[in-house]
Design a protein around this nucleic acid. Structure first.
Lengths: 212, 212, 212, 212
DNA sequence: AATGAATGAGCATTCATTCAT
DNA sequence: TATGAATGAATGCTCATTCAT
């Protein structure tokens, strides 16, 4: 039993620790992440975790960065695969579907990614990574619409997912699609755009004029 | 049960503990909340906290419920004060301004409310309270538009706030106003609406039912 | 073995911990003092030490205070026993002898008391206790001479002891007696004082004000 | 042995480590000194510190030796500069002033030198160095008085400094001068000296021999 | 000769919980 | 009913040391 751990040179040690950390957070939440739990999960000595990651924040940063690959990569791939040649509004159903698949998947994975992401609220160390993720996703979407709209799409998607996750309600893909569509359809440069006043409106002028 | 008859000798004891809990979470995060820290902050005996709140989750529920009064009440009051008689699109600048004031306020208070809200992700006990809050805000907004749109407005606002808080970026009121406007302007009953597929709903059901 | 520790109510617990702390410091130095070592030495659960003394500093304060009784009480008793009716210079041999006995005793005890005392250099929490000790000893000596001289006697004794302890040299009682005598004999108000020139020697100001 | 041939590729490496050790002890005390902290402070690899100084004691010896240069050199220079041709009592104000300047300087530096010096209490390895320092200072002072008196002057100065440092009281230069004066004025060769029993010694032996 | 990697022991401290009033 | 005392487990983290280059 004790004899089974003579491995000194283990170049993948660091990676295994990050993987273990993700499993631990997935199963028990960030609150359940400790040097000890991750060491046990990774089957490495306790000292090994503190050696590779001087603080838990450091480990969380690595974990979040790795988790970002999940949804982010999916989204980018999907958005690209869609190969949208037509009007950008076509993006909405793709995104709504993607959200549905993601949220409908294993609850554990979804919670894990969101929990890591939201942890940036209280841990400044995670904010750059959270920003990276947002930027990456936004940039991916911006290929099919403008940057401002892309950012709003991401915000809306975040908000919709949170509503589902925080209030124990069902994800409604049709509703999501419709709302994403509104953000896309009403772009200033969209033909027949009802919110073309956006640019005109500054500080205190009346709300963006909508045509009737 | 223990919590069911809290005000016996010191009727304010329970309330003082909740207040202290909010201060503790505000200052040190949920991770910093313990029977001990809250007892010290409330200046009550340690045993008193375990007596009134058998578990920390119970205390968190009470705290979240109380915190909800903050932004929620502000939003409802503001929305009502606006006394919008005209087109519902006028709602956007009001909300954008309100968000700006809220987010521009004390970071501590903002973090506190969001942290409690987001904690529902991992604590099922908090979800009903989180749902209450969402429902209340949505209902308030629904007085000026339809329920589906209201729900999306809340989602978008959540998403925008999170982007600001998680990525350490500045809040852009103009951007927020414009995006909220898009959601409002493109309602199904707005003429020329490209998303006319979504009908106005008035039901109270969690997920807005949509037809195709 | 494990069954041998069912004692919940132990009113002397606190005192036993302090005693154990003194033994630990005596044997292994302050550097060897930890909640664990003291718990083991006192044969109490680890949590018991942190419960009674929230920090190690707190424990050190209690230990130093208790250690002060040692030499301090001896000195006061001895000084009183001497029942000096004659000129205060008689104090010198008494003190020199006392130092000799103290320093010639168990090295462990001597080191312990000095180490705790000197620890005040870096631990502000100990300074009030160190000051208490100095004041007490000074006051005891002041009964046989003036306050200023008493303070100097203490300082000289400290310095002589340190020389012995830090440089591994023998204590020379005769030398100590002679030097203490000089401090006593040369008091401004001592008859035939050869240092009545104190004032004369100093460049500008009169000697330190001494109470009489 | 490892330390015996330190300057091979990086001849300043060893010196840099000692300098860093002094900074570390100054800032965090001896308790804060470790191979890691000093390596970080010196900006050298961890292994380098263990290579050049096999044990922390070894490093402390080097640090103490270097620190000794501080006050010791100052004192010697000052005492020499004074170029006292007159009666030795003139030494007192010079020493009192020097103490005042030293103690009134940066607390960090003062604490550092004293802490290293006092550490000899528990670390036999440091005692020879502490003895060296005492001998050097004593010898310097002995040029202006006899050896026995010089030793007592050093002891009194140590005691006075410690009182100030350990009890958070103000240094009283006038008081120090007066007490040093007493030690000097009452020398055996001073006329009417009540302590004529102590002969002047010139030997180099550790303890001043006295007859009765 | 010199150093990065690695590890098990130990640290102060916090904690939920239990128990005896 | 309410609460101080008590405790064993767990936490993040630092460390001297060992080992394999």
């Amino acid at each position: 039993m004790a004899a089974a751990r003579p491995r000194r040179h283990d170049p993948e040690r660091r990676q295994r620790i990050v993987d273990a950390a993700l499993r631990v957070v997935g199963a028990r939440g960030i609150a359940g992440l400790s040097h000890r739990t991750v060491a046990a999960e990774a089957d490495v000595p306790l000292g090994s975790t503190t050696y590779h990651f001087a603080s838990l924040d450091e480990l969380l940063v690595a974990a979040l960065r790795q988790a970002n690959e999940g949804f982010g990569r999916q989204l980018r791939e999907r958005a690209e695969l869609a190969d949208l040649g037509g009007p950008s509004t076509d993006l909405a159903p793709v995104l709504a579907r993607l959200m549905g698949e993601w949220i409908g998947g294993e609850r554990t994975g979804v919670e894990l990614e969101y929990e890591l992401y939201l942890a940036a609220l209280r841990r400044p160390a995670l904010r750059p990574v959270a920003a990276e993720w947002t930027e990456a996703v936004t940039a991916a979407l911006a290929r099919h619409t403008d940057l401002v709209t892309a950012r709003a799409l991401v915000a809306l998607m975040d908000g919709i997912c949170l509503q589902v996750l925080l209030t124990d309600t069902e994800y409604d893909e049709e509703y999501a699609r419709a709302m994403l569509t509104r953000l896309l359809a009403a772009r200033p440069d969209a033909p027949g755009d009802p919110t073309s006043g956006v640019r005109r409106v500054s500080s205190d002028s009346p709300g963006p004029s909508t045509d009737t």
